[in-house]
Structure formats: C-alpha cells, structure tokens
C-alpha cells in the first residue's frame, strides 16, 4: 500500500523558509485555499500556513548546533487526528496515505487539532474549517503538469533539496532508501502515531573525504 510522505534532510536544511511561502502561495489559490491572513499590515499579523520552519539550539557555546526544523503535517500512519473527528471530515486516504480534511464536512470543532501531538493543524479563522498540509494532492496527481513537477510545491522550491517526496512503503523509492541509509527517524515516536514523514539527522564530516584517484601533480 502506498504511503506518500516527505523526508526532510536536516543535514542540509538552512532554514530559508522557501518551503513556507511557496506552500502558502501554491495553496492559497489552490484546492486547499484560501489561506487567510489576519492583520496582514497591522499588529501581530497571523495567518494560516501549512508549513513552518523553526530554529532550535542544541548544546552550549562553543559546541552549539543550530538546527533548522521545518514542520508540516506528518501524514501519520496511525493518525490520532482522524478517528476523533466526529464528522469524518478528517480522513486518511487508503490509496496513498495522505491525511486530508474535507472542508465541506468540517464543522470547525478543532478536536482533531487537539489530537495532533505535532501542532500540524491550523483552523482557518475565516472559513472556520480545519486546514493542514495536503501533501499538495492537487499537484502530485495533476496530469496537466509535467511528470517532474508532480511534486509538492515546497519540494519543488527547496533550494537545498532538503525535502524529498515519495512512497515510504516502496523500499526502492528515493525516500525509503534515504531513510534506510541515513537512519531517518520519526518525531515523538513515544506516541505510536507512526508519522509517515521522516527526518534525516545531521551528519558531521570530520575530515576531507579521500579521493579515489588521488594523483599528486606536485
């Protein structure tokens, strides 16, 4: 069974926020739109975004690591946000594992957002329905797009290719291989939500890699 997901490589993410605004831009005028912004030119502007890039610090000076951490819905394989939804608006697609909200059914009770440990859902303050990353379902199956562009907006945008997209259940997919080779991990494994999205950890190169055909012309 297919499980589409994002795999995010923290080893190369520089925290540029391209995935944040490209997501907003794609989705506000798309099937999952609109994504409203309150007080867009006023105090404490606050809008709906499906994806955020956060910054964490690990350790103490001078051994500090700065970690840029993008986060959107993880399309959990056992998504706690789905069974709690009273209306069935929140659902997980059998065919590809994408967790979606049907805006036409949603009553805006917010219960699903309580049931998401990751803070991945945002209520739209104007349409009053729950919104979240759709994994760009309106791109990835759009046959009018060239094959190479049937990928999420954030993945297309990311300048460091830190965002990989694919089927994590297909062992031969790029994402599965990356998870296997790079010890991709899930967030908050303690809750058994089995997030489909995975993160690839930092990997430190201590010394210059050896060259296969090192010939010294000196």
């Amino acid at each position: 069974m297919t499980q589409l997901a994002l795999v995010i490589d923290l080893n190369v993410c520089v925290g540029c926020h391209a995935c944040v605004t490209s997501c907003k831009e794609w989705n506000t005028s798309g099937a999952a739109g609109t994504l409203a912004d309150d007080r867009p030119y006023g105090t404490d502007p606050s809008g709906t975004f499906f994806n955020r890039v956060q910054t964490f610090e690990v350790g103490e000076f001078p051994a500090t690591q700065t970690v840029h951490f993008p986060k959107s819905c993880l399309h959990c394989e056992d998504p706690p946000c789905v069974p709690v939804c009273p209306t069935g608006a929140s659902y997980k697609r059998a065919e590809d594992g994408i967790v979606l909200v049907d805006y036409d059914k949603c009553i805006g009770c917010k219960y699903c957002s309580w049931a998401c440990p990751y803070g991945a859902r945002e209520l739209d303050e104007h349409q009053k329905v729950m919104k979240k990353c759709t994994l760009c379902v309106d791109r990835v199956y759009d046959r009018s797009l060239p094959e190479a562009e049937r990928r999420p907006a954030c993945v297309m945008a990311c300048p460091t290719s830190a965002r990989l997209f694919g089927d994590v259940h297909d062992p031969d997919s790029e994402v599965s291989k990356a998870i296997a080779e790079r010890a991709g991990y899930a967030l908050m494994p303690e809750w058994g939500t089995k997030p489909a999205n995975r993160y690839l950890p930092r990997r430190k190169t201590e010394c210059v890699p050896p060259s296969p055909s090192s010939s010294s012309p000196r």
């Binding site: 540029c16 391209a18 605004t21 907003k24 831009e25 190479a148 300048p159």
Partner: peptide
C-alpha cells in the same frame, strides 16, 4: 498572479525558488 515558481530551465536556480521569490504575489 496565481503562482510563481522557479524556472527549471534557468541556469542560475534550476527550478528552485526562495522564500522571497515565492512571495512575489
């Protein structure tokens, strides 16, 4: 303007775009 994305044929950015470029709207 519906969407602004990186031009994959462009030698500079080869299809990617940044946070600013994506907010041109």
């Amino acid at each position: 303007v519906r969407y602004i994305d990186g031009n994959p044929n462009h030698p500079l950015n080869r299809g990617v775009i940044c946070a600013k470029g994506s907010s041109g709207i």
